[in-house]
Design a protein around this nucleic acid. Structure first.
Lengths: 164, 164
DNA sequence: CATTTTGTTCAAGTTTTTATGAACAAGCTA
DNA sequence: TAGCTTGTTCATAAAAACTTGAACAAAATG
């Protein structure tokens, strides 16, 4: 089963070790401690430490206090909506906004182009890019709405919300 | 401007050279030939050949016949909808269906688990995964609809469809 | 048919990414 | 405070991904 997550991690550009960590937590019946991860996955402390750091940042794992133990214990986030939100906020949005800035810089460059024909063509292409960006921005709330269990096409879904 | 595409390529897990090739085609005012790409990007023939192969497979570039020239000329696909559709069909769907198969295999494994308590827990987690998969499948048509220029939330969009 | 042009393939080299583990910090415990 | 336990950092090693270029195929040209 862990293999499923290793592949999923690869798909979204995360290293194998992170897929393994989340996968093991997902499978486990109880919260696991740092060194249980090290031992059961047979990977180094360094990898686990850095992997958990990323997963915490993404909101994909949560610290879970275990009475009587000094060790950190972790539980996986099981809500797809929250997982996707974390991923978008952390890995996607930054690209979108830096993209906006770059496009503004391009606009300035294009205005400085003397050749009118070239300038017109460049402006057309820049507009295409701007349109793409707008659409991508519009997409995010739609995606979240679908994952939130609110069927978007009314009268088409009969899904039950088990894990919110 | 090419830099924008190099970054976008990185975001979806494609090598730099592919971003450069598509970027240059996107900027160009006319179709470019194989060796124009090699010369203007200063990358090897091998990279251009393989890059174009991937881009053709994705439907991100089209061969364009130029009278009087034996060389292949290429034009970029400018429709975001088609670009996204190509990406999903080529890079995403395969993962989804192989994922389905793996999940079925897991189901078989879980049924063979003797410990009833463990089995119950595993079935629950497997169900979560199946739910995630269903939702992902539902997402694709919704995404395509938004990109198709059909506003999904009526009375909210005033976008013009210039490039279909 | 020999030659040239055009593009592909693939083994080897380069670069980038990921994993390792030893050294280090932080905070308990006694 | 000395001595544990727990987890982080970071230089280096290992692995993976990407690029190159020379050899090769395919097809047009003369």
């Amino acid at each position: 089963m862990i293999d499923v997550f290793v592949r999923a991690a690869g798909l979204i550009g995360l290293p194998r070790s992170i897929g393994e960590i989340y996968g093991l937590l997902f499978c486990a019946k109880t919260a696991l401690s740092f060194d249980e991860l090290v031992e059961r996955l047979q990977i180094s402390k360094g990898s686990v430490s850095q992997g958990l750091k990323v997963l915490r940042q993404l909101g994909a794992v949560k610290l879970h206090y275990v009475p009587g133990s000094r060790r950190d214990h972790y539980l996986p986030e099981l809500s797809m909506k929250r997982l996707v939100r974390g991923f978008i906020k952390d890995q996607f949005e930054p690209h979108l906004s830096s993209g906006s800035q770059r496009l503004q810089g391009l606009d300035a460059l294009i205005q400085a182009e003397p050749d009118a024909e070239l300038r017109t063509h460049a402006m057309g292409r820049l507009n295409t890019l701007l349109t793409w960006q707008q659409r991508t921005r519009k997409l995010i709330p739609v995606v979240m709405a679908v994952l939130g269990g609110t069927p978007f096409a009314p009268g088409e879904s009969s899904e039950e919300e088990t894990v919110v």
